[in-house]
């Protein structure tokens, strides 16, 4: 199965800009399906981005983050060709990880 994570990390000078797009339903628990039953909450709780084995950015999310979440941030110290590891875990204990190269 293809990864649920897509990452574009671009280094320019000392700063690396990271854009991540994750495929996830992000069900809030407030929405009903076609039969009128509530769809139980199913959402990503935490995204951790690591560079050089150390976390540089941690996102804690509630169900108010949109479906297929998008995240953009920047950090210093990354170089072209470095590995950047992105992992998420959701409220049902599912998770996914992707390691991308900084461009």
């Amino acid at each position: 199965m293809a990864s649920t994570i897509r990452v574009r990390a671009t280094a320019s000078g000392d700063s690396t800009e990271v854009q991540a797009l994750i495929q996830h339903p992000m069900d809030s628990g407030f929405v009903k399906n076609a039969k009128g039953e509530l769809i139980p909450p199913h959402y990503i709780q935490q995204v951790v981005i690591e560079h050089g084995g150390k976390p540089v950015f941690i996102a804690d999310w509630g169900p108010a983050v949109s479906k297929d979440p998008y995240l953009k941030f920047a950090f210093k110290g990354g170089k072209k060709g470095d590995d950047l590891k992105v992992s998420w875990t959701d409220n049902k204990g599912a998770s996914d990880t992707l390691t991308a190269k900084i461009q």
Binding site: P55, I58, A59, G62, A64, V65, A74, F75, G77
Partner: peptide
């Protein structure tokens, strides 16, 4: 909705939806 931890080296800036 969301809380972000800006760890050493990270810029004080974030975008999301």
């Amino acid at each position: 909705a969301a809380a972000y931890r800006i760890l050493p080296g990270a810029a004080p800036s974030v975008s999301n939806r």
